[in-house]
Amino acid sequence: MGMIVSIEEIAPAFKRYVVESPEVARKHEAGQFVIVLMGEHAERIPLTIADTDPEAGTITLVVQEVGKSTMEMGTMKAGDPIQVVGPLGKATHIENFGTCVCIGGGAGIAPMLPIARALKDAGNKVVSILGGRNEELIILRPEMIEASHEMIYTTDDGSFGKKGVVTDALKEYIEEHGKPDLVIAIGPAIMMKFVALMTKDYEIPTVVSLNTIMIDGTGMCGGCRVAVGGDSKFVCVDGPEFDAHEVDFDLMMKRQRIYLEEEEIARKRFLEQHACRATDGVEVS
């Protein structure tokens, strides 16, 4: 059993949670996640470990409020109990590759942070490309600047950095500086798909971290499975990171939508019950 130590809003519909969980903090490696559970009626939701403080026995989670469970989590307070299990999934394979381009989109910036840090510590040149709808939604900027050698930003509305999407910035970077040794992309499935298509043409090794629907997170149900190189893989134990060029993103996107109707029912019901709470910034990505 863990406990929420602090909650802080870092952008519209984005909150940073510091959660007490000493065992997880001690064992965590970049790329791993936890599953949290808020009570008797709750579902199990996977969240990447964005940061840890092993001394204090805490982990940091950065959560985008997209539906019932993440919104409910947003109503919790410091001192509230929360069940946490982990660290789950395989750690990122870290070595000195040379130049690494780290592409983070939306909530995908949070899981990128520990990976960028680990790559930098291993002697890589880290170039981060962060994308979001507008300036406010490019989260964790100070932390990412510290973890990177070079920063590139893109926004849909051009309010900050380059106007456009992350693949435009990647293409520009490659044309100017040549091919990096590794690309890592974490964000919405559609973003990862287009990064993968581009780097496949350039023949740049590329890793993506997949966010399929999970239940147990320990390899017991197969609900998180995706097709990778024609084989079925369980994201929670075989991943969450895979060779981007082998992933069947179209299938994965369909599988992410399995419970769309039910999610909408749950979201509406939650909002009705919490009618007093403002609904600003809540938009399903």
């Binding site: 239940i215 369909k254 939508r257």
Partner: peptide, 13 residues
């Protein structure tokens, strides 16, 4: 991998 094909474990869990 079609939606609606699942393991007994997932269904029962």
């Amino acid at each position: 991998n079609y939606i609606g094909v699942l393991s007994a474990n997932e269904f029962l869990t």
